[in-house]
């Protein structure tokens, strides 16, 4: 089977598995909305305050939602042994891993775009910032999945890896958070956002090339 077919076979399989448990697919979305809802309750509902905080709050919540959904990336494959099958395949593991991350992002990252307008409304984010918020989500959520995959691959063999996973992954998320929320912040103020969006795109391309290698190496370590 050629490599490209193997890649799409993995994507198709993972999407099918996710679709069978579609009730779970909505969980990261609920979580995202819930976390954002907590902020007005905690700091008060003054419109000015909320508007100033909006980009940061939305992005920190997106980060946490992405982090929580990461656990499902390799867990079930690790438990039922299909991860070992994947390691035995003749194709380079890094490409197959990329397929798994892509499928995972389609299921958990992309839907965040759907609720983003609702959250922008809650936080009083100006309408002019909406396209930038979407663009930053499209570019940055796959980045979160790609970087997070390294952490999941390192901790999938652990019984209670959740806490360590966040300790490993969150510091690596810092640049994504800075540039993504920075872009939305500037858009809300009516400033150009080209630089931030370009940097996010560059980081995404870099991560597409670089992160599958350590993820594959870490999976080999975890399975042994």
């Amino acid at each position: 089977m050629p490599l490209i077919q193997a890649f799409f076979a993995i994507v198709r399989r993972d999407l099918l598995l996710a679709f069978r448990r579609r009730a779970e697919m909505a969980n990261p979305l609920f979580f995202f909305v819930l976390v954002v809802t907590l902020f007005p309750l905690a700091v008060g509902a003054q419109p000015n305050l909320l508007r100033a905080m909006a980009p940061g709050v939305i992005w920190v919540s997106a980060l946490l939602a992405a982090l929580l959904s990461l656990d499902g990336l390799f867990r079930s494959d690790f438990e039922d042994g299909s991860l070992e099958q994947l390691l035995l395949s003749p194709h380079p593991l890094s490409v197959l891993v990329l397929g798994k991350v892509f499928a995972h992002w389609l299921v958990t990252g992309l839907p965040l775009l759907l609720v983003a307008p609702l959250l922008a409304l809650f936080m009083g984010l100006p309408e002019q910032a909406m396209p930038t918020l979407w663009l930053s989500l499209i570019l940055a959520t796959p980045l979160l999945s790609l970087i997070g995959a390294i952490g999941v691959a390192l901790t999938v063999g652990l019984r209670r890896g959740g806490m360590i996973l966040s300790l490993l992954v969150l510091p690596l998320y810092v640049p994504v958070l800075i540039f993504a929320s920075g872009a939305v912040d500037r858009a809300a103020g009516g400033l150009p956002t080209g630089a931030q969006i370009n940097i996010l795109a560059a980081m995404l391309l870099l991560a597409l090339v670089l992160t599958p290698l350590p993820t594959a190496a870490a999976l080999k370590m975890s399975v042994n």
């Binding site: 390294i150 390192l154 360590i164 969150l170 350590p214």
Partner: peptide, 29 residues
């Protein structure tokens, strides 16, 4: 935080050969 990630990952993995491989990957990342 990066340093603490390395030490806690090493501490969490029982088999020390695997743990060393894991922290090697993490240090490079």
């Amino acid at each position: 935080f990066l340093y603490l990630g390395v030490t806690s990952l090493y501490g969490a993995i029982e088999d020390k050969r695997s743990a060393a491989r894991a922290v090697s990957i993490l240090a490079l990342v």
